[in-house]
């Protein structure tokens, strides 16, 4: 037999999706409740006293940032747990002994994690429409950013899952790096609102580019150019792919 092990990819994808469906209520309820809370606090209580940002009401302004916040954390946690779990239970031997190459394994695991993130992103978007008036100027770009971000950060999560030796390490990157960067990355404000030098400092925060590009697809306004957003996301994805290729070639943290 030659070609691609489609049955293998499908087996991983289906099993990973089944794992999410087993916990479907946590998977869906958490983002819906969290989003609702953000809208009540930021959109309703604080937003009503805030002026419009770039001609968009504050409630609507934070929608892309909120979705991005969930996309990043969900993609990372889904993908990292997906590959950490077999390491933890010892079932990794089966994946390693299977006639499956690195690309096929990654497509299965990362594909499933990204699918779940996209679904959650869309659920948050749907929840947001109950609280505020959401317009989407560039729907194709919106979907493109949604997919690209989910895939990229699922790849990143996959790397974390391989790197992590315990559950603490699994949680440390999302909580100590991603969440702060997202809060400081313009999810709830435009970086134009910041005084110098913080505005310039913010340009070194990768999440700024993600949020900005995504917000541009909604309202046509962004802190940085949409090209820069795309280039950044694609570049980060390339970095993750290079790291993964190296891991699978050397067996780092996978094989003694």
């Amino acid at each position: 037999m030659s070609g691609v092990n489609l049955h293998g990819i499908w087996a991983i994808y289906r099993t990973e999706m089944a794992r999410s469906i087993r916990t479907v209520w946590q998977s869906v309820a958490t983002p819906v409740i969290t989003t609702a809370l953000y809208f009540i606090v930021f959109g309703g209580a604080i937003g009503s006293r805030m002026s419009h940002v770039g001609g968009v009401g504050y409630g609507a302004f934070i929608v892309p940032g909120l979705i991005m916040l969930s996309l990043l954390t969900q993609s990372i946690s889904n993908a990292s747990i997906g590959i950490y779990f077999p390491k933890f239970t010892g079932t990794m031997f089966e994946i390693l002994s299977a006639p499956l190459n690195a690309v096929e394994a990654v497509v299965g695991y990362v594909g499933a994690a990204a699918t779940k993130s996209v679904v959650i992103g869309l659920i948050i978007l749907a929840t947001a429409t109950f609280f505020t008036d959401v317009r989407i100027l560039h729907p194709v770009w919106m979907v493109a950013f949604l997919l690209l971000t989910s895939l990229t950060f699922s790849l990143f999560g996959f790397l974390i899952g391989i790197w992590a030796k315990n559950f603490e390490q699994l949680a440390i990157i999302p909580s100590l790096v991603i969440t702060p960067l997202t809060f400081l990355g313009g999810a709830f404000y435009s970086i134009d609102m910041l005084p110098q030098p913080w505005r310039t400092v913010s340009l070194f925060n990768p999440v700024v580019y993600l949020v900005s590009g995504f917000r541009w697809s909604f309202y046509g306004l962004g802190d940085v150019g949409v090209g820069a957003s795309l280039a950044f996301t694609a570049g980060f994805m390339a970095l993750c792919l290079i790291a993964l290729a190296w891991i699978f070639r050397t067996g780092w943290r996978l094989k003694p």
């Binding site: 049955h7 087996a11 289906r14 089944a18 031997f93 089966e94």
Partner: peptide, 29 residues
């Protein structure tokens, strides 16, 4: 090749049928 390792390593939440089907798929069948 089929391998039965020394230690029992299974996804405890899965069912017997699903985990066996998973293995078959993983090996490209």
């Amino acid at each position: 090749i089929g391998l039965v390792p020394q230690e029992i390593a299974l996804d405890m939440f899965s069912t017997v049928l699903n985990t066996v089907r998973f293995s078959r798929g993983l090996f490209g069948k």
